[in-house]
Design a protein around this nucleic acid. Structure first.
Lengths: 154, 154
DNA sequence: CACTATTCCCCACTTCTCCCCACAATGTAG
DNA sequence: CTACATTGTGGGGAGAAGTGGGGAATAGTG
């Protein structure tokens, strides 16, 4: 199954709806049935998982030790900002207001295909995050990925 | 399977379409089924991978840990400038507008067979790159890379 | 129960993508 | 040299994708 890839900007209408990019839709497994889960990311953006990929994430989170305060804190703060979504008949998503606000998304959103999941950024926040992404750092990144020095910690 | 080789210039029409060189098409494995992935290169050009070759790249990228900010950044910034393409019925590619713009491709594109992949250059950028690399310095480079220190870094 | 707010389906319109047709240029076989 | 196939190039047009708004059904509130 091919990874999500590419970046696509779409406008958010005043009802909080965003078109889900058609190119990405073609990469969603039919098994996901237009069902997704969004949640806060560890960067200032939202993560969007199609249903079938989300199941793996749930397995990961349920494997966290729930009998420590650290473990409970992670579980609590991970899942409390997660929400299930379904595409409407026009292939749009209604992003929850609190998540949009947290991610700084107002009139436009940028979808970035990131392998197993999709990131949703406000254009402004993405621009900030991109300030330390020069062409040179992209070249280094490229060499890492293609060239072989990928330890799984990276 | 033979390596991609040779160089072919084709015009880009005002819909962003470029003919895929017939000579190269004959070298694409039937398993690729006219499917390709383009992405930014580490020189100011685009890289084009037939599907069967690209799959190995995806395997590498999906092995990166997606639960760290560093890993996320690697995945995001690598895949966001990549896009899947399919040849149309006239054996043409529709290059994405943002990638064309980044590579400076407007009315013409030069395909360069490069082993496992194909490079796509704007004629202007290629000329600049050629001017930076005289034949003499190419001779030295060639000897270094091919003749001697064959570590996988170069 | 009445009132408000929200959700989501449907419709309308614009833009874009891609299929199809056409044709010129090049290559190939007899 | 001629006949025919392949390749490269361009454009028209059907259908898909993106965007916005009206309005019915649903849920939340006092």
């Amino acid at each position: 199954m091919p990874s999500f890839k590419g970046q696509y900007e779409h406008s958010v209408d005043n009802k909080g709806r965003v078109a889900f990019p058609a190119r990405l839709r073609k990469l969603v497994s039919p098994g996901a049935q237009d069902h997704f889960t969004v949640l806060r990311g560890i960067d200032p953006c939202l993560y969007l998982y199609p249903m079938d990929k989300w199941e793996a994430v749930e397995e990961r989170i349920t494997s966290v030790n729930e009998y420590t305060r650290r473990g409970r804190a992670v579980i609590r703060n991970f899942l409390r900002y997660a929400e299930d979504l379904v595409l409407d008949k026009q292939n749009r998503l209604s992003l929850p207001g609190d998540l949009m606000e947290w991610a700084g998304i107002t009139t436009a959103a940028i979808f970035i295909g990131s392998g197993e999941s999709i990131e949703i950024w406000s254009p402004e926040k993405l621009k900030e995050a991109d300030e330390d992404l020069t062409f040179e750092s992209y070249q280094n990144l490229f060499e890492q990925v293609m060239g072989g020095e990928l330890d799984n910690e990276e």
